[in-house]
Design a protein around this nucleic acid. Structure first.
Lengths: 238, 238
DNA sequence: ACGACTTTGTGCAGTCGTTCACAAGCGCAT
DNA sequence: ATGCGCTTGTGAACGACTGCACAAAGTCGT
């Protein structure tokens, strides 16, 4: 059994209960806040100044009661009989999420995914500043992508230090992800967003989240198959 | 109030309880099955033939009890005192997910994200076949990406029909997503995976899932900020 | 100024998901 | 053949989340 290898590294998602619900905001609510924020941004662009929970709930795709409960966790920011002030709410949710300050972000891996992320609106705006791009392919070093000059992986630690990077985004092949992850941690990065389809290990005090692009596709396939079975049964029944 | 517009379209995620847990497999379990599958693939490559729940649980990043309960929902496939047969489990989970048959996939939008998805391992393998790429930019039509010739958006319906496409992937800008979504539905696609950061409307019998790449980043920011506050408090305390 | 209407905020109950703990079952050695 | 140790499968407790229904509170019209 090699599974009993001694390590102080913890797998992602294995946080203590206290950490999972810090300051009394449940994890489920936190993952909905960005959705609300996106809906509110749309409203702001339309020039809407005030919005009722029911309307915002429709835009966000949740129930009105849940929306109100979520927002009440951030404090009292609605006006009874009127609704919520859009601008105020944006400020409040942004503060709760911690996206008021601009986090310095480095993207490692300048393949298609890395480039997509570098020019992604949700990354450049909303309190995030992509400050550096890094790749291990020397033929790509020096190339300018999304206004940033690509630098070599060797310089990773220097780049993190000089650009004030707090968050690292992994858009590398799966095989390289763990090594880059370790180096990011060593360089002092405290948050890592991993797009490589592997399970990474990082110290407990580094927040690590993994997004598997094919995961949702497989979930989709499940419901597709379900539908086919259901349709088949329905056809037989009728 | 323009929110009361009459429509048979339902927002994503607003499914009836019966549909959400068809055949008795809870949604939460379904979203973990791909994770198990990925871990099992790694084991297969290593030549491991049999695995205990505890070991697999570590690889998948979940508790052993939850893993066993999830797997028991697919039927009895373990051997007491020994563990699970890796090959058998792969087959069984693949069948449950419906990724045994190869779904035809069309990717709409051949920007960086679209190209990344086209060459993504999790998309081309695992029961999915990217059969067509479509873009509205005529200068890109004819270009060959990931072994496929890019075709124009005008041909979307024809492409869906002739390539036997069942699933559509949206990698377009947010502004174009709803229109393309409607056309995909019109062309007979029954599942849509949306990467554009907008809330889409689709008929109830079309499975629609949205992945917002910046969502996880914002959640990450939340825990980062939390950590900073905690560190601050800790510094004061000591 | 006051009443009626609207909308928030929230206690509560129901549901869903996760974890614990243990009995049942299987293989292997003797 | 039989007993021992290991692992699965699962009933039950626990905890978290969601939705309902209503009281509190504020605004707008008269």
């Amino acid at each position: 059994m090699s599974a009993s290898r001694v390590q102080t590294l913890t797998p992602a998602g294995a946080r203590s209960p206290e950490q999972r619900r810090l300051r009394g905001i449940p994890e489920a609510t936190v993952s909905r806040l960005p959705v609300y924020l996106r809906a509110l941004t749309v409203l702001t662009e339309r020039g809407v100044r005030t919005v009722a929970s029911e309307e915002l709930a429709v835009l966000a795709g949740v129930g009105p009661a849940m929306l109100r409960k979520d927002l009440s966790l951030l404090g009292r920011h609605g006006t009874r009989g009127v609704g919520y002030d859009v601008g105020c709410l944006v400020t409040e949710i942004s503060r709760a999420l911690g996206v008021t300050q601009a986090y310095g972000v480095v993207i490692v891996g300048v393949g298609h995914l890395g480039q997509a992320l570098a020019s992604y609106a949700g990354f450049t705006g909303r309190g995030f500043a992509v400050r550096a791009l890094v790749d291990c392919d020397r033929t790509r070093v020096g190339e300018v992508v999304a206004g940033l000059r690509v630098r070599h992986l060797d310089e990773l630690e220097a780049v993190v230090a000089e650009c004030g990077v707090t968050i690292g985004v992994l858009a590398t092949p799966a095989a390289a992800a763990q090594e880059v992850c370790d180096r990011l941690v060593g360089a002092g990065v405290t948050g890592i967003l991993n797009f490589a389809p592997v399970r990474l290990l990082a110290p407990e005090l580094v927040e690590l989240r993994t997004v598997d692009l094919s995961l949702e596709l497989q979930v989709l396939a499940f419901y597709e198959q379900r539908k086919q079975s259901a349709d088949g049964a329905e056809a037989v029944r009728s």
